[in-house]
Design a protein around this nucleic acid. Sequence first.
DNA 1: CCAAAAGTGTTCGAATTACACCCATGA
DNA 2: TCATGGGTGTAATTCGAACACTTTTGG
Lengths: 234, 234
Amino acid sequence: MTAYNKISRHLIAVDCIIFGYDIIEKEIKLLLIQRRFEPAKGKWSLSGGFVEESESLENAAKRILFDLTGLKNVFLSQSYTYGDVQRDPGARVVSTAYFSLIKIKDINNKVKKISHAQWCPLSKLPELIFDHNKMVKDALKELRNQVKVKPVGFELLPEKFTLVQFQELYEAIYQKPIDRRNFRKKILSMNILEKLEEKEKITSRRGAYYYHFIPDRYKTLRENGYFFELDFSK
Amino acid sequence: MTAYNKISRHLIAVDCIIFGYDIIEKEIKLLLIQRRFEPAKGKWSLSGGFVEESESLENAAKRILFDLTGLKNVFLSQSYTYGDVQRDPGARVVSTAYFSLIKIKDINNKVKKISHAQWCPLSKLPELIFDHNKMVKDALKELRNQVKVKPVGFELLPEKFTLVQFQELYEAIYQKPIDRRNFRKKILSMNILEKLEEKEKITSRRGAYYYHFIPDRYKTLRENGYFFELDFSK
DNA sequence: CCAAAAGTGTTCGAATTACACCCATGA
DNA sequence: TCATGGGTGTAATTCGAACACTTTTGG
């Protein structure tokens, strides 16, 4: 037997900040749910759940994500663990937040069928329960950081997309306009994109070429990061 | 009553990665302890402990740090939460790691009296229990990231220090040589340092001027960050 | 006077930014 | 033919990297 007796045990939750990108409305959206139990029943919140005895934190996050969206193998990244005693008025719950990136289209039909779930634009976030607004804020900061270092766009865009759409995604993430020529120059110089024959002809008469990610190159960059360190190296 | 019944409860630990800088040996060191209980009794580990019913994660970390070092108000930053089921062979324990920066001198005498605690150079880390080596690795990465954005040196250096010493700290953190002129140019341009009249005359005949942090300026930069974003801003 | 460490500027190349006009097409 | 959005290049600037000699002083 171990020395781990008589020690406080705690409820551990995992909350998922689920980001999606709406390519039409050019907005980052968050998948929210309406709580079906007390405390705070009826209020909007992140999708979360308790960690079970024999599952890792990460698996708990995957389970919660799967239960809501039916998706597996989605991008998932731990952001922060919230441990204030009073953060959940119902009980002392420590919660680890994970953020994930998914393509809205992948689950649009499913979400529409779930009456208590809804995509909500970042700009119109309602008040969420507990410290969930803070979680979103922190995760967004984290997302912005990761975007700088990893070619994260892949997770949020459809299979093929135009450079204009790609740029709009970045503008949505940073909430800032970006110079078109500079953006293209930079992105194309990374050699992660391949131009396709096909054009997107919905938004303009002229049409814009579709691109897609080059999987190999994309994976390499994902793993190694693609901006180089800014430090005093020699 | 809430709906929080019948849900698994878990042991939650906090582990502290305590970094110190040895200005003489020019090395980052880690404060390690030798475990006094099973499992893994006698092996080296980070300083950790269980989170109690009515303390926040952060307060748990502060408590653990205080018990070991007697210090309060030290730099403390959450790094990551480790939640694999098997990470601690004794029991299922979820552990949140915090890293802290302290001046070795502040607690040198105290540490010497604690037989089971020891400063260990990063370069000579022994095998630690459980996933503690990974925790150190992650925390070091985090430290390197933070150093880029925050003037963290203050926490690790004595009240007054020379520019050479300041540079040596950065070299120790990055494990890379840095060009002296470029380093000075950059650091001085931040206006966080004030040159003192006094010189350090131990390591050279000529002597090197002491500097110290300008508290106001330092605080501002700590809070706002001092490298500006590298992004597609306009 | 000399060994040893402190201190100091300039040049070069790369990367980022700013900026404006032509192109293709369907209606 | 024209309105709409797509596509393209260049010049100016900034920033980081490389680099070597002079100064000080105790022994």
